[in-house]
Write a protein that binds this DNA or RNA. Structure first.
Lengths: 239, 239
DNA sequence: CGTCGGGTTGAGTCCATTCAACTTCGGTGG
DNA sequence: CCACCGAAGTTGAATGGACTCAACCCGACG
């Protein structure tokens, strides 16, 4: 059940048997969420952190006028709210975008890890740092990339992240997002979102049917996106 | 010299004498940077992390077309590249936006802290988590707020952050940013940046002369920004 | 067979950009 | 002392990108 987590943390540095055991001991209770359900609600003070075993989730905020913005997409092997372990109060909600199978870790167990397992602690810390790096890349995309480039970048990022946890098939992957939800990721209107997708399609770099994206021309997509995966810190080295 | 750091970390939870001593031992070498100079260059692999004692710095990325986007603003008491301790390779640059007085910590010393001082480790981790929370708020601002609201939000955030480290005077603070640089924060053109500033000025909620911002009507500014400081995690509690 | 959510397309409006000119101000050298 | 210069700020006009409103299509499902 924790395979994705091991793949995710283990891509950055080797995980020992003992560390895997510590994680397995910390993560016991399984839960299931349906599409659209809140995994964590804004303003709450969680006492557990949630790991996605399978499914897609997203962090989001809603403004007074009803506008919604997703601030991250979380896939299998991602902790959706590891940051709440120390931040304490949720300043945003986390929603299941597909049926989600998760497993939770008591904060007391995470605390014990920080007291006794420094290397594993650094790997968990690193996991939240990669989160931050992704946020920064999104800020760049929102601020200075064209909308087409932004979308291309997102597709590149998701493909690479899903590859790490073995959730891609050849050059395609499943993305159970409606165009309205995607618009709330990129920060634009549904109509315009549709047109941006249309341009990438017409360029023959991707195919997008049935919530499945197939990358037809990876080098060209990377070019449009100016995608450089450095920020995902995928090199395996001592941390 | 580390007063701002103590104020910054200490706002979230009490720092013990011993922890302050550990930090003081880790942070020894002082450096100075002039305006516009790179404190850390993109692609490098730092062996130290840098704390701002005084001045303003920013993380940034540059795209192929020359477009630049700042992804964060760092003030006194902020670590500009604590994340590089574990991320290893810089995926972005960090630039001094004013003359910067900094002090650096060897990563070996930080590593020792993670091995021996779990609570201090958690506070350092928390510092990077707040960074991430700020990133998320910026994403929301870029995606779903009006430009005026975005600017108002930034001003609120900076005012509150600077207040923590005692760098405000009454309702005003120093912000040594040109309108062109500010445009690269909000992700818009210089001309439009100027007009957005103009509207906030004409609304009589702020005064902005000589790189000094004075907030004339805090409640109204907060209203325009829909500013809720929860994401800054300013409550003092066990972490 | 009708309905409903999601996707697609067109038309008109508004917002943000570019290009360009002009001002203001501090600094510097004649 | 002031004339000049360059960097930063401000303003106008025209272009183009993104939004809203609205209609229509389509496949899933009751």
């Amino acid at each position: 059940m924790l395979e994705s987590l091991y793949l995710n943390l283990g891509q950055h540095d080797a995980l020992s048997k003992n560390e895997k055991a510590l994680l397995a001991d910390a993560m016991s209770v399984e839960k299931y969420f349906v599409t659209g359900e809140d995994i964590v609600v804004e303003g709450s003070r969680p006492t557990v952190s949630t790991l996605i075993v399978d499914g897609l989730a997203a962090r989001y905020k809603v403004l007074e006028d009803g506008g919604r913005q997703f601030t991250s997409l979380q896939v299998a092997g991602d902790f959706v709210d590891l940051h709440a372990f120390l931040l304490k109060t949720m300043d945003h909600g986390i929603m299941a975008l597909s049926p989600c199978h998760v497993v939770v870790a008591e904060h007391s167990k995470l605390r014990a890890i920080t007291e006794q397992a420094p290397h594993l602690t650094r790997l968990l810390w690193l996991d939240t740092l990669v989160d931050g790096a992704i946020h920064r890349e999104w800020i760049v995309a929102m601020g200075r990339r064209s909308k087409t480039s932004h979308l291309a970048h997102l597709i590149c990022e998701l493909f690479v992240r899903l590859q790490v946890v073995k959730k891609t098939q050849d050059m395609s992957f499943h993305l159970p997002l409606s165009q309205a939800e995607l618009a709330d990721v990129l920060g634009l209107s549904v109509v315009h979102m549709n047109r941006v997708i249309g341009t990438l399609r017409r360029m023959n770099v991707i195919n997008w049917v049935n919530h499945t994206i197939t990358i037809l021309d990876w080098p060209r997509l990377v070019g449009i996106a100016e995608f450089d995966p450095t920020y995902l810190s995928m090199s395996n080295e001592p941390r």
